[in-house]
Design a protein around this nucleic acid. Structure first.
Lengths: 337, 337
DNA sequence: AACGTTTGCACAAACGTTTGCGGTTGATAA
DNA sequence: TTATCAACCGCAAACGTTTGTGCAAACGTT
């Protein structure tokens, strides 16, 4: 069965299609009588607009592109939820593309968004991405682009992130304050800017606290199980008394590793993490963490892009929005002296 | 800057737009000379097709709608990954809508998919959904619809699921075989068909094993922390020696609850779960589970809908695809005698 | 009664493609 | 020479909307 179009209604009501179009959106040019008749008819005939045609005519899709490097269980779901929540409320739709941490796929995805006429683009970069040429095209057409979570330094796009260095320092500082002197930093994929920022923060803090003579060792793991084995190895040589996990994915490897080796947490080794907040609650013991709120980040990113969508004041210089965070202390660390 | 269209190229090359259109897709009607010239020109002018126009003209969007009840960290990410993987490879795109377990939002989402001319629809139902009238419209236009994970009984849509009753029985049977005689069943949201199927399976098995005189108690929890407190309560009265958790989300509450009460696993109480497989590995002790593979489910669902998309043999009666599963034994249960 | 002003609707172009058909070449065969 | 036939390309309609403009009738004003 073919869908009914505005044209069918027009024929049925013996009016022109323009009249139907206007009547359906309560245009005052059309008499009340006809307006109601057409509305009625539209219902009866089960009419629903063809958005593709509307898009073409209006040159606007009400679609936001969302490109993420991967769909895994940490952080991303919260972000998607946050984004989706505000996007859907605002009558926009989400075209979701995964780039699988592959630069070529990311480029392709941007192209797909472009070709499908998205009104805006939200993107978390792949860990292979080192420049943003593929986003210029969007920019040149004044399609708002907002980077979130996984970003790059020195670009001229808006970005929503946290202060990575500071977040790390808050965590590590807490370890130091509670007596840790042999601290292991466990980070994510080396190629991520997020990783280097957090690593920098780590080193900076250690440097500033050199009076405490902290011994450190930093490692990188690109997934939970790599983190797990890194902890295993570190425990056979370095023997940390405190571990900083840069993310949930890392944390998920740290705790099981320690438990398997029967290391007492926090007595023999404290653990602290940057986290979305769920995992720390279900691990044993519950983990202290700096709360990096994915839901909120998603909402912020969405709000921001919607705002850019309405205020087409083309050239406000780009803005970097730093989300606030909060330190939550649980049993995986000792109390402050 | 305006995007270059086929028309611009036509003007530039002094040919008609139809020639450009054909040249760009290597149509043999166009001489090689012109074809190459136009391809070249298209590159130089940075031409990219306007998919909206193509959609309108071809009456095909290459978009698959994906509607899910919620974006949380369990199961869904794997499914999305699986779906996305095969969808993207096949040159389709994913319009993702969340219904937040709200029937009205689900209906709205289906409408959005319809209006945007998706070529197919993948949907996991909200827990409020009790009938599928809102999907009929799609069906009547021969738009393939595939239900997955969260489905309904007695419908005439294709569905990709696991054998819930059987899966449950495998788990519970293992508990019984390893000596458990006081078994607590902890299930998800009562309104889900998945829940009732698993509950049925549970009861059926217990009934069939009545010679063993198994004491049981079943509870329902709609999230991790409800599950947690259910276990707390149960342990003050029923005192199970085996717990079956119907999902990762439930399991995430069970283990911490037991650990907090210092219950020895599996000595005092065994734990088994239906799971996607990640969580059981990072909990302490590692949990035995029936592997319900989200990634695979996603792939299957996507493959199936793509296949329906090509073979437009309209009326094959609907099919229910049961995914295979596998029991993985870890330390949260005792070994078989 | 002549004029301007609303009111209410239809016409047609436009958005960027695809595609059936028809027409113009030049070459080949009869 | 004429008929035949590829080879090659353009015309125009179509997909379903939105929207600027035009036009007729009805109304109100002197």
């Amino acid at each position: 069965m073919k869908r009914t179009t505005i044209k069918d209604i027009a024929a049925m009501a013996s009016v022109s299609i323009s009249t139907v179009s206007r009547a359906l959106k309560h245009h005052p040019d059309i008499s009340l009588a006809i307006r109601e008749k057409i509305q009625q008819l539209a219902k009866e005939m089960n009419y629903h607009p063809n958005m593709t045609a509307v898009q073409l005519r209006k040159q606007k899709s009400n679609i936001i592109g969302l490109i993420i490097p991967e769909a895994h269980m940490f952080f991303i779901p919260s972000v998607i939820k946050g984004i989706s929540e505000v996007i859907q409320k605002s009558n926009y739709k989400l075209l979701v593309l995964l780039s699988n941490d592959d630069i070529q796929q990311e480029i392709d995805n941007v192209r797909i968004c472009y070709e499908n006429g998205v009104d805006g683009l939200l993107i978390a970069l792949s860990n292979q991405t080192v420049k943003l040429d593929h986003l210029q095209e969007m920019k040149e057409e004044d399609t708002p682009v907002v980077l979130f979570d996984k970003v790059l330094d020195n670009n001229d796009f808006d970005e929503i992130i946290i202060n990575d260095a500071k977040a790390t320092q808050v965590c590590v500082d807490y370890l130091i304050q509670t007596g840790c002197r042999r601290i292991m930093g466990l980070f994510g994929n080396k190629t991520l800017m997020m990783t280097s920022k957090r690593l920098e923060g780590f080193n900076e803090l250690i440097e500033s606290k050199k009076d405490f003579h902290i011994a450190t060792e930093c490692h990188f793991a690109s997934n939970t199980f790599e983190a797990w084995s890194q902890v295993d190895k570190a425990y056979q040589s370095f023997k940390p008394d405190g571990i900083f996990a840069m993310s949930d994915e890392i944390l998920a490897g740290v705790i099981p590793a320690l438990k398997q080796m029967k290391v007492a947490i926090p007595d023999e080794c404290s653990v602290i993490s940057i986290s979305d907040g769920f995992l720390p609650k279900i691990l044993d013991p519950q983990v202290s963490y700096l709360h990096h709120d994915g839901l909120n980040l998603g909402k912020m990113a969405a709000h921001h892009i919607l705002q850019k969508l309405v205020s087409k004041d083309t050239h406000i210089p780009h803005i970097t929005l730093m989300l606030s965070t909060q330190l939550i202390i649980n049993q995986s660390t000792k109390p402050l002296p």
